[in-house]
């Protein structure tokens, strides 16, 4: 499971970087959200790419007002290579430890309810403002 997780997370990281570079270069918004395409309703993650690009350009308040999930995206972009390289050098799977830590945290009902309430609020915001 550890190897599978490491490989999947690495592929996800590369895909996220290519996606951000591609959207930034392209300058045109591409709709990949299945919720928007099928149900014509934006999801809680809609606007995260645009917000992350704004955050990387230093426009913090614009980014947060578009979609606060950009903070999670930026944490993933910045922390994953550090944890990955440290795992490779120390020959221990800290990626798996992080994954298990996050899974256990989300099993706590208070944490889960808090996260879900935040995401639902972002979702409602996205629907109202047609993000």
């Amino acid at each position: 499971m550890s190897n599978k997780l490491n490989i999947l997370s690495a592929i996800t990281y590369v895909a996220v970087c290519i996606w951000l570079l591609g959207v930034n270069e392209g300058q045109t918004p591409i709709t990949v959200c299945p919720s928007k395409l099928i149900y014509h309703i934006p999801c809680a993650g809609c606007g995260t790419t645009r917000a992350t690009l704004l955050l990387l350009k230093g426009q913090f308040f614009d980014a947060i007002s578009l979609n606060p999930n950009c903070i999670l995206a930026l944490m993933f972009i910045c922390l994953y290579p550090i944890i990955g390289v440290y795992s490779l050098l120390s020959k221990q799977s800290y990626i798996t430890d992080c994954y298990n830590f996050l899974s256990r945290a989300l099993e706590n009902k208070y944490v889960l309810v808090f996260v879900l309430i935040c995401e639902i609020m972002i979702w409602i915001h996205n629907i109202i403002y047609h993000i």
């Binding site: 996800t12 990949v32 299945p34 999801c43 993650g45 809609c46 996050l102 899974s103 996260v115 879900l116």
Partner: peptide, 18 residues
């Protein structure tokens, strides 16, 4: 729940994970 939140945040990994 972890995977559920991940799917919610990424909209099913832009549909691929879904």
């Amino acid at each position: 729940t972890g995977m559920g939140v991940g799917k919610l945040l990424t909209c099913g990994g832009c549909g691929i994970w879904a």
